Computed example of a mutant assay.
Amino acid sequence: MKQRTIANSVEIVGIGLHKGVPVKMKLEPLDSDMGIVFYRSDKAVSIPLKIENVVDTKMATVIGKDDVVISTIEHLLSAVYAYGIDNLRVVIDNDEVPVLDGSSAGYCMLIEEAGIKELEKSKKAIKIRQDIKIETDDGKRVSLKPSNHIIYDFSINFEHPVIGEQNFRFDYSIEEYKENISKARTFGFLHEVQYLRSIGLAQGGSLENAIVLDQSKVLNPEGLRYSDEFVRHKILDAIGDMALLGYTLVGEYDAHAGSHHLNHLLTKKVYEDKENYEIIDLEKADAEAHVFELAYSRIQA
């Protein structure tokens, strides 16, 4: 199995969620072993997608270098990860990735428009070897554990009549991702949106790019895309955050009330102990590598 990039450059213009200004973004192919690299064209600064370049995780996953940042990268990365793309240059002329409709479906369409190209060098995956967990005193947790599959299991519990308790278990395949995860939109509560705007954030947020709820109902006229759209979007975010590991993940992600911050702590903890993981070359023909190849073959486009 070979590494992947996109076949052709493709670009889009959209609105940033927090600043509300137009952003031009271009996706460009890269060669083997170059990874995912963000480039701020207005600042002439490249920011490789690495755990050590994460600078903020309060409202979104934000990477930065030399006082230059790029925010809200998780939806784009979720789609990039879903299509198995290892090498990609993301050129952007502002500090925030376009929010599109609040999901990753638009990025799936963009990647399919660009096409996928296999490269010469073999693809690698990160195989989780033992349980790794981050847990808070109030019961929030995120974890990774060994599996020969790529699984995301997420639960949430909101004291809101529309949300309540929700759980979704996602056994990875590209078609399942496109149909059941990519369309799930980000969400927020009206009182939170009003507060964020008062401090200069969420300026681009609207009913066109987020689910907004008041105390009792969804305010979007079209309603929900799924009855459990909220927890599905949490999985979408988690997939994007796990892309910071730098390799296709083979293992099971499990979370209750997880967040960008906890996901960041989890990816850091993976690399704190070499017993936690193994980097597998998917071109090798031994039996173990074949298991990983089968696991990854389920997300071929």
Rank of each mutant, 00 (worst) to 15 (best):
K183V: 11
L190A: 11
R185I: 02
E179T: 11
F189D: 06
D171S: 11
P161V: 13
N157H: 04
T186A: 10
Y172L: 04
S182D: 15
I181N: 05
Y177D: 07
D171M: 03
E175F: 05
T186Y: 05
V162I: 14
S173W: 06
L190H: 09
F189G: 09
H160V: 09
Q166N: 09
E175W: 02
N167M: 03
F168H: 09
V162N: 03
I181Y: 06
H160E: 04
E176V: 06
I181Q: 04
Y172K: 03
E179W: 01
F168E: 10
G164T: 07
K183N: 12
V162R: 07
F170A: 01
H191C: 09
Q166W: 14
K178Q: 10
F189R: 06
D171V: 13
Y177A: 03
F158P: 00
Q166E: 15
Q166T: 10
Y172V: 13
F168A: 05
N180C: 12
S173F: 07
F189T: 13
D171E: 14
F168W: 08
E175I: 07
E179G: 02
N157D: 09
A184C: 12
F189Q: 09
S173M: 05
E175M: 02
F158M: 01
V162H: 02
V162Q: 09
G188K: 06
R185C: 04
H191Y: 10
E176T: 10
N180Y: 15
H160I: 03
Q166C: 12
G164S: 04
K183Y: 09
Y177R: 03
F187W: 14
L190C: 12
R169Q: 07
N180R: 15
P161C: 05
R169T: 14
I181V: 15
Y172M: 08
N180G: 10
N157P: 00
Q166G: 11
D171I: 12
F168D: 07
P161G: 08
N157C: 01
K178M: 05
F187K: 06
R169P: 00
I174Y: 08
S182F: 15
Q166A: 09
F158H: 02
N180H: 15
E159F: 00
F189P: 07
E176P: 00
I174W: 03
E159Q: 00
K183P: 08
K178D: 08
S173T: 15
Q166L: 11
S182Q: 15
F187C: 10
L190E: 11
Y172I: 06
S182Y: 15
Y177Q: 03
E159L: 00
Y177L: 01
E159D: 01
N167I: 04
E175K: 08
I163H: 02
G164V: 06
A184M: 08
Y177I: 08
S173V: 05
E175Q: 07
E165I: 06
I174K: 12
I174F: 03
R185P: 11
F158Y: 08
V162C: 05
A184G: 04
G188A: 09
S182I: 15
E165R: 10
Q166F: 11
N157G: 01
